[in-house]
Amino acid sequence: MTAVPTVGAPAARAPGAPGRPGGGPPPRSLGPRPLRRIRWPYGSGRRPRARTLVAYAFLAPAFAMFLIVMLVPIGKAIQVSFYDWLPFPGAENTWVGLNNYQRALGDPQFRLSVVNAVVYMLVTVPGQIVLGLGVALLLQNRLPGRMVFRVLFYLPVVTSWVVVSLLFRYLFATDGGFINWVLVEGIGLVDEPVGWLDSRWTAIAALCVLGIWKGIGWTAIILLAGLTGVPRELHEAAAVDGAGYLRRVWHVTLPALRRTLVFVSVMLVIGSFNVFISVLLMTQGGPAGQTEVPLTYTYRQTFNFLEFGYGSAVAVLMTVVVLILSIGQMMLANRAERGE
């Protein structure tokens, strides 16, 4: 176990990659190194059964929670998606097979909602990573009041979605909204107020701004933790070799952050497909359903129109999409790593 460098490894794994066993060697660019088994710290390894039991005992509460509030509802949703379902005691629910899925795949409104979510993902995920990385690099420096800035950037993350969505709805209001006030009165960029929330793409742009603004802090904190794992000597060596700041970021910092970046991007992609509260409160899916996203569509079908079976089918489809995307991302990342 002595081979693992002490510098930064615990910090890199603590918040950055909770599911990763053993922290591993932080930067692969240091050279290939075989993965080693981590020794169980509470015993010599002579009683494997007891060891396992202890581990299960620790896992049990979390797993029970996971089972009750996640796996059981997921299973139920999958079941419901094959029925024409009403959730009332004594309701007669008819098995409709794949009808709900067929309907979803041929439903233009559902398709539109998926396109909106994909656009939202393509804008907000890179946006949060690039800006979050910038903030993390800035906050890494020993500037005065560093903690204050860290708190300020993290504040949007812990603020309620409801509050910030209503706030942004005001900011982007056509008449009397702050953004239009700045654009028209402040810098005179446009003559007429822009109807931000009155057409599809401007409304999605506003939603993206909110999504990025609210997510920067989270991305920055995770990346900041990853940055502490970048060996200082590499930076120094690169500097001695004459590399400027940007070249060092590109050739030293980013490769060292690879695992953290993969984790962050997977989480952000999943998060972007779950955009819900901001859409519901800022645009209500409007105008004319043009900014609907999969979750608002599911919600409306289920609770406004009592299409529980159809709503569940849409939800299951979205779960599959997110699952495929996440697995694909991780496989790509792994392959890139192996290819080096």
Partner: peptide, 14 residues
């Protein structure tokens, strides 16, 4: 930042 299952879990727990 919620995964799909967590979102649904929340709805259910709510």
């Amino acid at each position: 930042m919620n995964s799909v299952p967590r979102r649904r879990g929340r709805l259910v727990s709510a």
